[in-house]
Write a protein that binds this DNA or RNA. Structure first.
Length: 585
DNA sequence: GCCGTTTTCGGCCCGACTGTTTTCAGTCG
């Protein structure tokens, strides 16, 4: 069973409790919902956790749910769940997938209209709605009938399953809306918030907050954004629009004196806010986007720093706000000092247009232009790491010759650019047969190599782990490039035994790459966190194929920050001499 | 059903918006 399937099952149990008696089972509903959310967003396979007896490491999974899940994996079903859902029409569950449908609404409709077939329930309901059978039902009306038809149509078009945007794309979208909003004189300040501000690898909706003295005017201005396709919601303090690209933008507005509270509230994450509010409650305080209520009196905050300060806490960097222990440390004033973009002293994974036939894509900028860009970025060093020459179109001898010629070119670049250090690297494939793509002799004169996997992704976890360790074992191999091979929205990464990889890297002075390429962001943040815990060093690279792509470094740094990495965890924050020394270890 | 800087028992975030109501239910973030 996949994570999604298990998550759905638990969500259905929450819905079942809601239908049975919402007030009686209030806390079970929350518990099942929470466990379901956690499992849906898990970065590991829940089956692996089950096999390693680690189910209770999932937040929100305690003894009871753990045992139910064990039963599920052992026998394929859970007796308690079967008994619970007995008498609940199964046809409500597919409806829960459709936005705007919750347990209550689904149940009412299924019952009133006797829709019994789970396979066809969505189509059946659409048909009934179009025949006008919903409007007459109690607590429904003309408007809600139309809303149901639209919700189902959009669901069937696949719009709701829209893929999440990769972070830089969301940034672009936010940027264009921000520039529009800033043209209004009523807008005092505007910030993109939510998952975008937390720098999550993929962003669903774009969230924005505006500071203003005239909320109503600003909301009107926002909903008349030229690219708006539909206004989803419009109230006194919030509004949501759908823009022509099919993406949703949510807005909240607030007066300047309370803007800090709004920033905090709307940055999230949801779990961070819930935990923070529970903590505040224990001190007799109640938090909201308006401020902090203390004995019935509302305290307002212009800045986030003051808001967190009022709780006797450190300000928490947005990248950490995921309820992963940051609240406890902020209370103890013991948050780590995270790495910053300014700490980066060089980029080691760049592909120039140096002319030879590589195994994968060649870059589009000259070494000279890339060096120039590196200087602009204030770097002390730059590493060139084109893909190894193609092994299908060259003999071993040819490969050695090609690289000798390239060495000369790099020497030339070195001698004509004395104000930056050039490092002679290469990105070498680890083949499925566990060896490197090109012969040892061709690697001798390089400073080091980045080893990566670019094919045969479907090996087993054990085989893949062995393959990676074999590749990294070469004395020139210092960095594992894009370690999981994932492509956001396209391909899941391959599975590795991370304990083994971490162990090997720590003992043998190897580093894992954080690849800043927008649809890689690989290592993923959760694995960065584990690497930090295991004291494994990392490097942040852009994998640039053009000089301006070297500016993508900030996204790599944000991944590192989300993984709680400090400057000392990242090797390309070292000055050149120390970095060079590590390379030759 | 989960969980612990006040707790292994007794709590469990807070508010906006819409539609169908005439004071609220349902959904969402």
């Amino acid at each position: 069973m996949s994570n999604i399937e298990v998550a759905k099952l638990l969500k259905n149990i929450a819905a079942t409790y809601t239908i049975k008696d919402e007030s009686k089972f209030r806390f079970q509903i929350i518990a099942y919902q929470k466990a379901s959310d956690a499992i849906e967003h898990l970065n590991t396979e829940i089956k692996d956790l089950y096999e390693n007896d680690k189910l209770d490491t999932i937040p929100g999974v305690g003894n009871a749910i753990k045992e139910y899940l064990e039963e599920l994996f052992q026998t394929g079903h859970v007796k308690h769940f079967d008994a619970l859902t007995k008498g609940i029409p199964r046809s409500i569950f597919p409806l829960l997938e459709v936005p705007t449908f919750g347990a209550k609404k689904a149940y009412k409709l299924v019952k009133e209209l006797s829709l019994k077939n789970p396979e066809t329930v969505i189509d059946d309901l659409e048909k009934k709605a179009k025949e006008g059978k919903i409007a007459p039902l109690k607590s429904f009306g003309e408007k809600s009938e139309k809303d149901i038809i639209r919700a189902i149509e959009e669901f069937k078009q696949g719009r709701v399953k829209k893929t999440r945007m990769v972070l830089p794309y969301a940034y672009e979208l936010a940027h264009s809306v921000v520039s529009y909003l800033k043209k209004s004189k009523d807008v005092l300040d505007v910030y993109p918030l939510g998952s975008l501000r937390r720098m999550v690898a993929t962003v669903g909706d774009v969230d924005m907050a505006i500071s203003t003295e005239s909320p109503k005017k600003v909301i009107d201005y926002f909903t008349s954004y030229p690219n708006v396709e539909r206004v989803l919601e419009k109230g006194e303090a919030t509004a949501s629009i759908l823009v022509s690209s099919g993406k949703q933008i949510d807005l909240m507005v607030q007066k300047p004196e309370s803007f800090g509270s709004l920033l905090q509230h709307f940055t999230g994450s949801k779990n961070h806010n819930i935990h923070l509010r529970e903590f505040a409650l224990s001190k007799g305080l109640s938090l909201s986007e308006y401020g902090i209520k203390k004995q019935g009196k509302l305290l307002k905050f212009e800045t986030e720093e003051k808001f967190y300060g009022a709780l006797d806490m450190q300000w928490i960097p947005p990248e950490l706000r995921e309820d992963n222990g940051e609240i406890e440390l902020a209370i103890a004033h013991d948050l780590p000092k995270l790495i910053e973009l300014e700490d980066i002293k060089g980029d080691l994974h760049t592909h120039s247009d140096y002319p030879f036939e590589p195994s994968h894509d060649l870059g589009h900028s000259s070494m000279k232009d890339m060096v120039k860009k590196a200087l602009e970025l204030g770097y002390e060093y730059i590493g060139f790491s084109e893909h190894n020459p193609s092994i299908s179109s060259h003999s071993e001898k040819e490969i050695i010759k090609i690289l000798q010629k390239r060495n000369k070119k790099i020497e030339q670049i070195k001698s004509s650019n004395k104000n930056i250090h050039t490092i002679n690297l290469l990105e070498v494939d680890i083949l499925a047969r566990n060896k490197l793509a090109i012969p040892d002799e061709s690697l001798d004169s390089l400073d080091a190599i980045i080893v990566s996997i670019h094919g045969s992704f479907s090996l087993s976890k054990r085989e893949m782990t062995k393959r990676v360790i074999n590749g990294l074992s070469h004395k020139k191999a210092k960095i594992l490039g894009h370690p999981t091979g994932r492509l956001l929205n396209q391909r899941q990464g391959y599975d590795l035994n991370w304990d083994e990889i971490f162990d090997f890297c720590r003992k043998n002075h190897k580093a894992l790459e954080i690849n800043a390429w927008p649809n890689r962001l690989d290592l993923p943040d959760s694995l960065v966190r584990l690497a930090v815990k295991h004291n494994v060093k990392m490097v942040i690279n852009t994998d640039s194929h053009k000089e301006n792509q070297m500016e993508l470094m900030k996204y790599g740094v944000s991944v590192a920050r989300r993984g709680w990495a400090k400057k000392s965890d990242i090797l390309n924050t070292l000055p050149y001499n120390e970095f060079k020394e590590w390379l030759s270890k």
